[in-house]
Amino acid sequence: MAETMRFEIVSPERLLRDTEVAMVVVPGTDGDFTALPAHAPMMSTLRPGVVEIFAEEGAEGEELFVKGGLAQIGAKGLTILAEEVIALDSVSADDLAQKISDTREDIEDAKDDVERASAEKELAWMTALQDVIAA
């Protein structure tokens, strides 16, 4: 049972990964789901979270943090259009904590709803990332 499917993850800046994989765990807005080969066609928005990629069955998963985006499962495989992809080892917990407290201040200082909404959105992915690192 070495079935695989096509997996692509694209950020606005570049095509990050284009490989054959056995399984991918995707953080959907309505809950995580696992994409396996020959999954029914579906499309889902993503919440900030970790995409876990398993190149083959039983192998160790590779983790990538996405800030949100869209996952599309079609006949060919899974495509993730990510807003931004962050490698987990590229962030330090201290920097992140600093950024989070900055963003919290931004929310308090926000002049209007639009500003507040965008700061809150920032905070959402930062705290999600913090949870992932802490875990």
Binding site: D30, P41, M42, M43, T45
Partner: peptide
């Protein structure tokens, strides 16, 4: 061509 399931 394909019937997609949309989430949400």
């Amino acid at each position: 061509g394909a019937i997609y399931e949309y989430e949400p």
